[in-house]
Nucleic acid binder design. Structure first.
Lengths: 220, 220
DNA sequence: TTATTGATTTAGTCTAAACTAAATAAATTT
DNA sequence: AAATTTATTTAGTTTAGACTAAATCAATAA
């Protein structure tokens, strides 16, 4: 197997993520935004990844993962999410503490380590943020979830995943009593700003901003 | 706390190790040998580490860890050895499989991670090779051990640690039936090459080369 | 003491991965 | 269609951390 640098893995991961998000064309700017780097740097790297046949890249078509690139990207994401799960399940981390550490751990090169962690955790399908963990072939379990922002008044739903893994957002959810698999009932959508009054776990009522509601994914 | 690069941590670790080995003067050449890099590169890095007040460096006196440098080096060693212990204790690694992975894991930056691993393992004092794990203050448990090469004929000893963590050496020991805490009786020291005939665990007799005997540390 | 050997440093080069500023190309708005 | 905005690329720079070759310094041996 090819040995990639951390930077290369991070680029592949971002292209993978943007692809999952359904972007029609992965352009340099969006990659630069995600990685918080200069677009000029992206041009360089995309050319190198194209050289290595990990992506197909052209100015007009943007970047697309090749078969090899997809496999490597999925593996990095798999590692990231397995490590996050491990940290929460085995080492008393909370869901808002795991992202940054997993960003480092995902670059550790050891198939045995990955397999043993997976085994220890019982081959989990979802990470602590509800994101699916790619299996060894890169295949994802999918759950059909909608953003809370699209749920009409009166409907009771279950929280399936969150679309923002930053400490700030997750602590905000903690404060509101919102956690994975918890239930939420939409009480009142405010017409003027799309914020939503919800009942959390059948108890307290809280307001969630429209922004927050786009990042909370739920199902019936 | 200061954030060091992996390379910087590796240099500090090597200086720490050479200091432990009792070298009177840590010179550029010995560092270059351990890291398998060019001595000219060492000069560069030692100056940078001196700049950062992690070592005191001069051509005549060589390199010495400062208080800060020592703390950081000990922490890296602590991480390395805790990870090795974790891999063996929790993830079914064998003692010959852990070194390279721990070389990567030792650079992960997360105090919580380190503390939780330590807690999970029950605050171990020694790693799978019998090397002492520095505590949070850099303090080492010491066991007075001698190389097997210095044990006279007829004496029965216990294996305490090994001075070479390479896969090759450890597999060799496995083959001979030698493991940590196992007993060895010195039967016959060969005059012509200092190789030693030993009885392992009161059963089979094997020959150990003089080289090997320098790397096996034992106690009575 | 001089010669030899070995260690260290200097000077210049290389690579990966970033940067800035300017130029060009493409897309959108007027 | 022209003007403006946005995206991309070019060209040149930077930094860390390595390299080589040559020069210098220090220690040891003849």
């Amino acid at each position: 197997m090819i040995r990639l640098s951390n930077a290369e893995e991070n680029y592949l991961k971002v292209i993978y993520a943007l692809t999952q998000e359904g972007l029609e064309r992965i352009n340099n700017q969006s990659i630069a935004d995600k990685l918080v780097i200069n677009p000029a740097s992206v041009t360089d790297m995309l050319r190198r990844l194209d050289e290595k046949r990990l992506i197909d890249y052209s100015r007009s078509a943007g970047a697309q993962l090749t078969k090899d690139g997809f496999k490597l990207a999925a593996k990095t994401v798999r590692k990231h999410r397995l490590w996050e799960t491990f940290l929460v399940e085995k080492l008393n981390f909370t869901w808002d503490e795991v992202h940054d550490v997993a960003e480092q751990l995902e670059h550790i090169q050891s198939d045995k380590l990955l397999d043993e962690i997976d085994k220890l955790l019982g081959h989990p399908k979802f990470d602590p943020h509800g994101d699916p963990i790619p299996d060894a072939n890169g295949k994802l379990s999918r759950i059909n979830a909608s953003p809370l922002a699209e749920i009409p008044e009166g409907v009771k739903v279950k929280v399936i995943s969150v679309g923002d893994n930053t400490t700030a957002f997750l602590r905000y959810l903690d404060k509101q009593g919102i956690s994975l698999n918890g239930t939420i009932t939409v009480k009142e959508i405010q017409a003027f700003d799309q914020s939503v009054l919800v009942e959390v776990k059948g108890k307290k009522e809280v307001f969630l901003s429209a922004e927050a509601c786009k990042k909370i994914f739920v199902t019936k």
